[in-house]
Design a protein around this nucleic acid. Structure first.
Lengths: 201, 201
DNA sequence: TGTACATCAGTGAACGCGCGTTCACTGATGTAC
DNA sequence: TGTACATCAGTGAACGCGCGTTCACTGATGTAC
């Protein structure tokens, strides 16, 4: 029965991948089951073979997205010393590229106030995802692990990306991001930005 | 024609007040025109005598909410020196009371990632509201006006309230808020929290 | 002061639409003998 | 190896529902004479 199970898992993965992008881009109320299933190459009726309800999909998608984020973060850090790894994460997080691509962005920045209105299941996944991010930051701080500082840095980072996306003026948006980059690096005890990174896309 | 106009304005105000609470609690996709009109004591058909569309309502409500927030902030600061006024604003912003009452809370914390997906009109109002908050903070900093610092502080404050609402664990939620209180006060150049405020409800 | 008329905020029925969910089905795959 | 059967992922029609918006209307208010 393993090959059949594998095939089902693959389908599930495809649905979760489509849901991950749609959820972050349009929010829990902005996505439709039929749309997501279509993006996964299926019809909407098959949805309930994989998920109990739309609520369930949201929670599972959140877990899936955090998992993929962790894998991607590990890839970015390969071969870097802890401080350099942390600097790389911070710069990527606070980049215009992250701001401009919410469908692929950190759930903390795309979904924080949606999740506050969501079911317990989704909120627990959000909670776990945030703890993992805090642990990653904390363990790479030049001054040694410090969960409280890591939480404060992640708070400023997530807040900056959210606000930079909401605001209408590109100039204000850029200055929110650039300001946070300087501020978070300094608070983390990292060296100032090298000048060329300031203009990095 | 003035008395009739006044009456219309009063009705409009009532609708905006109902919309202000519903919008912040449930988000733009979570509110219904019929519900809001009912809360304002009217039927849904009359809606279009006041607003062009639901999009228009969202933008106008945002402006209305920011306006009321400004009035409330001015009331809180009455008779306080700039630094004390700033401290009071920060403490209130980062209080469990603010976290637990989103219907009455700052739009930056209740709507940031919803607004990122909204029409230009709403985003412009959000932009203006944020600039006003930055100016208020900047003008009360003990070290003198500093817009960049004010933006960074507001970013951390808004981020903290949002994350504290999204997370499932009360302990994590409290530590996000408490950590931000310490961190924002220190960054603003304000004295540490008096011990009794730490336990304030 | 009194009457006829115009205005327009608000009513309530109706609309078309997209949503989440259900369900009888089909057909490819895996198992038993 | 070949045949009969069971499983179940996925299909597609159907459902009830709530939404945003429209529209013909009504009746209180304000204006003109």
């Amino acid at each position: 029965m393993t090959p059949a199970t594998d095939r089902k898992q693959e389908t599930r993965e495809r649905v979760l991948r489509a849901a991950g992008a749609a959820l972050r881009q349009h929010g829990p109320d902005g996505i439709g089951i039929a749309d997501i299933m279509r993006q996964a190459g299926l019809t909407h009726g098959g949805f309930y073979a994989h998920f109990k309800s739309k609520d369930d999909l949201v929670a599972q998608t959140l877990a899936h997205v955090f998992g993929r984020m962790t894998a991607r973060a590990a890839r970015l850090e390969q071969g870097l010393a802890p401080a350099a790894a942390l600097a790389a994460q911070i710069d990527r997080y606070l980049s215009p590229a992250h701001r401009d691509n919410p469908a692929n962005g950190c759930p903390l920045t795309t979904l924080a106030n949606d999740i506050a209105r969501q079911s317990d299941g989704a909120r627990r996944e959000f909670d776990a995802g945030m703890r993992a991010l805090v642990a990653r930051i904390s363990g790479r701080l030049p001054g040694g692990p410090d969960d409280a500082l890591a939480r404060a840095l992640l708070t400023e980072m997530a807040g900056a990306v959210m606000l930079s996306r909401a605001v209408a003026s590109p100039a204000l948006s850029d200055s929110i991001l650039a300001g946070a980059r300087v501020s978070v690096r300094a608070r983390a005890g990292l060296p100032h930005l090298p000048p060329e990174s300031t203009h990095a896309r």
